[in-house]
């Protein structure tokens, strides 16, 4: 297991380097740079040239990418062109905010998605099943930005239960954190919960029709035990696979949601960096997200082997 994990971590390094190279190429292919954004429509060619010189954008592309990699190997992701602070500092400051809301959202997704999927499967073809299917369909159909705005109108303007936006760190005020993080987390979770409901329901239906479940029931084991001990364990395999994907979608979905709710997380950071062509921040942000997703995939793969000992992987023990 340890060998396998180390091997996967080593494999991730070239992937990270290749992804950052592709990201560098793509963002430089798009017309416009930070100088254009900073200078605005009234900037003269001389203004733009000076801004590029100030920002180091007048360097040839190959020098810029080599500088990026040279700094990267020293743990330095560069300095944001617009914020004027080290990218690493910005990413480290923002990531706990996004990760916190993503985990909150993931918990909501798992609780609602798994529960609804299991209940629907256990009540196959009854009204509860149909209601769960409709819930799942609504969940996967609603755009999260629309849902976010509707929630603001309902829960903030009309009911006055939650603030319209902003962010309070958990360490500063846990209740304040829940108040500011709940609507963003729900907006992100609903789509994923719908997806998870559908997968859990179909997997559970398939598992419940297996011979070993029939055998367990024939032995007189209680239904709770049949579902909780025998069926659920086998439902978890596809669910764990999907959870990896869900977390990655939650991270990418944070760009829109954080902008709407005025939350200073990685999503807002990256969204603004893209809009303002802040190359080091885009590269640093993508590098961080890529690393996080690779790590997540490795965790999921390792979990497979824990959940199902039949799975043997190269390098595994």
């Amino acid at each position: 297991m340890i060998g396998y994990t180390i091997s996967r971590l080593l494999q991730a390094i070239p992937i990270l380097l290749i992804v950052s190279l592709i990201a560098f190429g793509i963002i430089h292919l798009i017309p416009g740079d930070a100088a254009t954004v900073i200078g605005g429509p009234s900037a003269t060619p001389a203004d733009l040239a000076r801004i590029r010189e100030n920002l180091g954008l007048d360097q040839p592309l190959h020098i810029q990418i080599l500088t990026f990699y040279a700094n990267l190997f020293q743990g330095d992701l560069g300095r944001s062109l617009l914020l004027g602070i080290p990218v690493t500092e910005a990413v480290l400051a923002r990531s706990p905010i996004t990760i916190g809301i993503a985990i909150y959202s993931l918990v909501l997704t798992i609780v609602f998605g798994l529960a609804t999927g299991i209940i629907a499967a256990l009540n196959h073809n009854r009204w509860i099943d149909q209601a769960a299917t409709v819930f799942a369909l609504i969940g996967v159909s609603l755009p999260n930005f629309w849902l976010a705005l509707v929630m603001i109108v309902l829960f903030s303007v009309h009911l006055g239960w939650l603030p319209t936006g902003g962010y309070v760190p958990f360490t500063q005020n846990p209740i304040g954190w829940f108040r500011t993080a709940t609507m963003p987390a729900v907006a992100l979770a609903l789509l994923q919960a719908g997806l998870l409901t559908r997968i859990t329901r179909s997997t559970m239906l398939e598992v419940l029709s297996q011979d070993y479940i029939r055998t367990a029931r024939a032995k007189g084991i209680s239904e709770w035990r049949v579902v909780g001990r025998h069926a659920l364990a086998n439902v978890m395999m596809p669910v764990v696979t999907v959870l990896g994907l869900i977390l990655s979608v939650l991270l990418s979905g944070s760009i829109v949601i954080e902008t709407i709710f005025g939350i200073p997380g990685i999503g807002a950071l990256l969204g603004n960096a893209i809009a303002s062509r802040d190359y080091p921040m885009i590269q640093g942000g993508l590098f961080f997200i890529t690393a996080a997703l690779l790590l997540l995939n490795i965790v999921v793969d390792v979990l497979y082997t824990s959940l199902d000992p039949r799975i043997r992987v190269t390098g595994g023990k």
Binding site: V157, G165, I260
Partner: peptide, 13 residues
């Protein structure tokens, strides 16, 4: 508060 809907809601509340 760059999203206009959220900004208007914040003013209303």
């Amino acid at each position: 508060l760059t999203e206009p809907g959220a900004r208007m809601a914040a003013l209303e509340t």
